[in-house]
Design a protein around this nucleic acid. Sequence first.
RNA 1: GGAGAGGUCGCAUAGUGGACUAGUGCGCCGCACUCGAAAUGCGGUAAAGUCGCAAGACUUUCGUGGGUUCAAAUCCCACCCUCUCCGCCA
Length: 398
Amino acid sequence: MIDVELLRKNPQDFQESLKNRFIKTDYIEQFLGVDKKWREIITLTDQLRAQKKDLSTDFNTAQTNQEKIKNISAQISTKEKELANLEKQRKEFLSRIPNLLSKDVPIGEGETANTVIKKIGEDRQVEGISHDQLMTKLGWLNTEAAANTTGARFRYLLSEAASTHLKLVSKAQQFAINKGFVPVITPVMAKSNLLEAGGFFPDGEEDTFKVDEDLYLSGTSEYLLVGLYAGKTLKAEDLPIRLVGFSTCFRKEAGSYGKDTKGMFRVHQFDKVEMVSICKKEDSEKEHQFLLSMQEEFVSSLNLPFQVVLIGSGDTEKKAIKRYDIETWFPGQNKHRETHSVSNCTDYQSRSLGIKVKKVDATEFAHTLNGTLYTERTLLALIENNQTPDGKVNLPND
RNA sequence: GGAGAGGUCGCAUAGUGGACUAGUGCGCCGCACUCGAAAUGCGGUAAAGUCGCAAGACUUUCGUGGGUUCAAAUCCCACCCUCUCCGCCA
């Protein structure tokens, strides 16, 4: 959630953010209208409540003022109904107003402004066949059986692919532990209020499997990791808190029908090792670069060619002020594809979740960041990049 | 799944309708004493919202949501969570 006070003071900044993200609405004006009314009525209601309190301090006073009290109670009740309605509208707008964009984010609609800022290992680019053909032939992947047992866009990982996957999960986790991250195994399900506070709902709901009343399979452990600190006031000297989570992730992939239908590049269920950092506000840009460097180092350690992309305004999710993607080379697709992303959410999540930092002279909201360290897509990149002309794959042993 | 107990300020605990403006202890912060510390003494110690330049005022919050009442931490209803015992079960 954005800072309402900031919005009241500088609505033009938020207008610009919406414009640059190519979201065409007049949310800001509508919100400010509702907010103004809400403030007026809250002031009125509080005054009425105070009056009522004064009139019923004890039984005798209450008896004497019976009529007045009834009258005020009726007024309060009317105002409370109005307030509830306005509050609902306020919340609805707030859940949709995106974070301000960082100044260095290139402006452009959709993915048009995404900018490659670094290429690593370009010379190793080779052509080859897709992970799907390779793995199916080697008996490492079975999507047909998965379609029978479970449905489309699920996978069985088998043999070397399965064991290498587990090794890489472990390797990624250990890599982060060595850098001081705390390993966490999170729940895979979350309540709607967590996903909303995390900045994913309401828009993200259509991409999420619902398993029970107000219970969803999370598409990433990010929300669960950040949620671990919900409602906590942290000591400045304990920051940054760096977590490396592991979870199986579930995504409906709504709106991507027909995209990446072969193999397991885009599936409903996959495992992910995720980094989350909670830090002081003055450190979040530095922390963002640090998480990116973690990703670069890890992907480099697997000897994979990749490029780093600074994501443009139209493609940056609402909770983030800036995002980088790592796109790894996929010889079978003959292009770079997203395997990692890392976002700075500043105080957007911590404000909703109540994650604060106690400093000497003030308590303020922490900043949160999240980034991928390893997913099954990285395994696919590794397989495609290590294929031999005879249709075999030489996977690294360590 | 069955039976019972419970959820109060960072932690522990008191509080069974108006005196709760939530007490007490611990912790924490400040001050005094001290070369310094411990101990001791004194004072302070929640969050959120609205109004206000500010000082401050007011409101809300005792697991959550409803209800009863002039008045709810306290009574009623529903739900959530924790613990104990029984049953079942990786």
